[in-house]
Amino acid sequence: MDKQTVCEEKIFHQIHKDWAVPLRNFLFYKFGDLEKSRDFAQEAFVRLWNNCSKVASDKAKSYLYTVANRLFLDEVGHQKVQLKFQRRMQITESQMESNPEFVYRQQEFKGRLEQAISSLSEQQRTVFLMSRIDKMKNREIATALDLSIKTVEKHVSNSLKFLKGELEDLKNIKI
């Protein structure tokens, strides 16, 4: 085999470092169970390691997403979800004290947005959140999920337009 495989521990560690969290997140976007998402992601890496001699390093990412998706389908399947997120920067107590109304509105907006995102189709939602939260480029998402770039672009922009429509009535809330 001429291509570099992922049996090299250094390469495997790097792939793990780069993709463990995005892979866990990807599963979370699909069904909202953080604990299980973590387990499936870990299992996908275990399988990658066990099959390392057959997977060229440039194919590792799509292998991981394919396996994770299969694990998800076999055990969980498509279902309605209600996603909840944390903020990277938590609201501080001083913010809370100095401007409680602002904090309240912000929380309301977050809740409504979570609801709207949860009502997107599974694929739209997953693609949109991979793009925004994991900061993946459309091309990266396309290879990971085996979709065309056009489909990914459509999902991201349509999701955004849909969300805007859903939140139309909050338009006058300034945050």
């Binding site: 866990r24 973590r38 944390q86 903020r87 990277r88 939260i133």
Partner: peptide, 24 residues
């Protein structure tokens, strides 16, 4: 407004959830 909010999100603030040495 929407993007600003979503971009600040994470499923979980704890990013050190995986131990790769467990696998290798």
């Amino acid at each position: 407004q929407i993007l600003h909010e979503v971009d600040s999100w994470t499923p979980d603030n704890d990013q050190q959830i995986f131990d790769v040495t467990e696998i290798t």
